[in-house]
């Protein structure tokens, strides 16, 4: 689950890592997503599908896609039924896909294995009446369950000068942060957890 002010960019960063390795990525219920940004982040457009408005069929759409599509990025509707949540959880356990959930409402309907949130961002490149946005430094807080239960913070450039997510120079960062020094590593962690952690439960908010 992704939370905070730069959730969409973070989701694109995570999905692009899987996409360059040939995985399919689906965006469900994100009709305002700006696709050129997705491409700038490195997403392979030949492996992208969009379901703009799942309407009240969100749970059905998700359980159809999970398993067939490796990464599903979605914004969860605020109300999903407990039964749908359980079914989706069972499918996730069985099939080993990854759901990246953007938190839009006041609280998320699903509880993920890994929660990434950003509360600080700082842009570079824009002055007072001159320049243009070039790069942004964010601090990502990683928390979650199981292997990710110890919360950490990671500094990232999202995007960096290359237009893609980059690690911040680690010299100044405390040692504990170096374990997850790039978004890529976080993506690896997410993927590993999705396949290995058996007891993934989804609590449904009704």
């Amino acid at each position: 689950m992704l939370d905070g002010v730069v959730a969409t960019s973070l989701a694109l960063g995570l999905a692009s890592r899987a996409s360059v390795e040939g995985s399919w990525v689906a965006f469900v219920g994100l009709d305002l997503l700006c696709l050129p940004t997705a491409e700038e982040f490195g997403l392979d457009l030949t492996h992208v599908a969009l379901v703009d408005d799942p309407g009240d069929q969100w749970a059905n759409v998700m359980s159809t896609l999970v398993g067939a599509i490796d990464v599903v990025v979605t914004s969860t509707p605020e109300r999903i039924r407990a039964r749908d949540g359980r079914r989706l959880a069972a499918r996730l356990r069985e099939r080993g896909s990854v759901i990246i959930e953007l938190k839009c409402g006041p609280r998320s309907a699903m509880q993920g294995d890994v929660v990434l949130s950003v509360d600080r961002q700082r842009w570079y490149g824009l002055g007072w009446g001159h320049g243009c946005l070039r790069s942004r430094r964010v601090t990502v807080n990683v928390s979650g369950r199981g292997a990710a239960s110890m919360s950490r913070a990671v500094d990232l450039l999202l995007p960096g000068d290359s237009g893609r997510p980059e690690a911040v120079e680690q010299a100044a960062a405390p040692e504990v942060f170096q374990t997850y020094d790039t978004v890529a590593d976080v993506a690896d962690l997410t993927a590993r957890l999705a396949t290995k952690v058996a007891a993934r439960t989804v609590e449904a908010g009704a």
């Binding site: 730069v6 969409t8 960019s9 694109l12 305002l32 997503l33 700006c34 050129p36 940004t37 700038e40 243009c132 946005l133 070039r134 790069s135 995007p159 237009g163």
Partner: peptide, 11 residues
């Protein structure tokens, strides 16, 4: 507009 582009369109 030069890259980077905004991630979400006018919301």
């Amino acid at each position: 507009l030069p890259a980077p582009s905004p991630a979400v369109l006018g919301c």
